[in-house]
Computed example of a mutant assay.
Amino acid sequence: MTKPTTDKPTRRKADASPYSAVWTVLGVVGLGYLGIAFFAPHVLPDLSSGHQHATETTVMKVSADVDTVKSSLTKLELDVASIKAEVTAQAVQTQTLGSQLTALDDKIRLAEAPPTTTTTSDAGQQQPSGTDAAPAETADMSPAPPKIINAPPRVGAPIETGSVNSANSKPISFGPAIVKPEPRSVGIQLATDPSIDGLRITWGALSQIHSDQLSHLKARYADLGTATNPNFGLIAGPVKSRAEAKKLCKELAAQSVSCKISEYRGAEL
């Protein structure tokens, strides 16, 4: 007995859907790219070089920004240093003006103080006593006769005067005059400036910074220039000897201060 034809299995025809078509196209494109990359790699674009170029551009931009920040910081440091220098100079000038005002107040106070006077009675009380009477008492122990102050002179008695008896006195002879020059004081010259006010500011700064060496000295200024080219020297002193002045200059020179031995002269600063 044979089976009917309807019982035989029938093969279903494959349906071509859009989904399978898309995958087919992607597979063809991938195979094509792999073939080009294998057989002709020079045709493909160089992606690494573009990425490297972008990286270099970014690094250069960052470096430029860093340089700008560095220049700004450097300018800020210079401004801060300038402000510090101005503040220091202002402080020194203020201290100098304060010392000048104090000195002026002292001078005014001394000028207003009443002068002290001494009377003749005080002078008489301060005379030494007992120095002239002691030899007389040791030479003659007998009491001296009383002396009448307002007694009339005796008749025929010589008149006593306070003049020197020329008969018994010897002529006074003086030898040749010897003039001894006054020893000049030693000082140290610390700076020069075309104005006296500049020397005052310089002395105020030096005396404050190097107080160990200059606290016991007083400042003077000496005219070293001419009418057309004024110049004044800052001289501190007095110093006991040239050896001490040399030692002091050596100590100041070690601290970058100009110093040389000079005569302590000039007017008070």
Rank of each mutant, 00 (worst) to 15 (best):
V62W: 06
A157E: 13
A236C: 14
S49P: 01
T119I: 02
R154S: 11
V22A: 13
A144R: 02
A254E: 06
L217T: 12
H210G: 03
E77A: 02
Q93H: 05
I261P: 01
S215R: 05
A14L: 09
E160S: 11
D223G: 04
T131G: 07
E251N: 04
A236D: 06
K75C: 03
H216C: 02
P238R: 08
D223P: 05
G27Q: 02
N150F: 10
C249L: 01
E251F: 00
S63Q: 15
K246G: 15
A151L: 06
L101T: 10
V69K: 14
D140G: 04
P158I: 01
K75P: 00
L206F: 08
A219K: 00
Y19H: 06
V66I: 12
P114I: 01
S72M: 11
I261F: 01
S17K: 08
A177I: 15
I83H: 05
R265H: 07
S71H: 12
L44D: 10
G266A: 09
L78T: 05
E56Y: 03
N165A: 14
A64M: 08
A254T: 04
D212V: 11
V80M: 13
R184E: 12
V25Q: 13
F174Q: 14
S17T: 13
Y19P: 00
S262H: 15
G204F: 05
Q208F: 11
F39E: 03
A254H: 01
A253Y: 08
G35S: 11
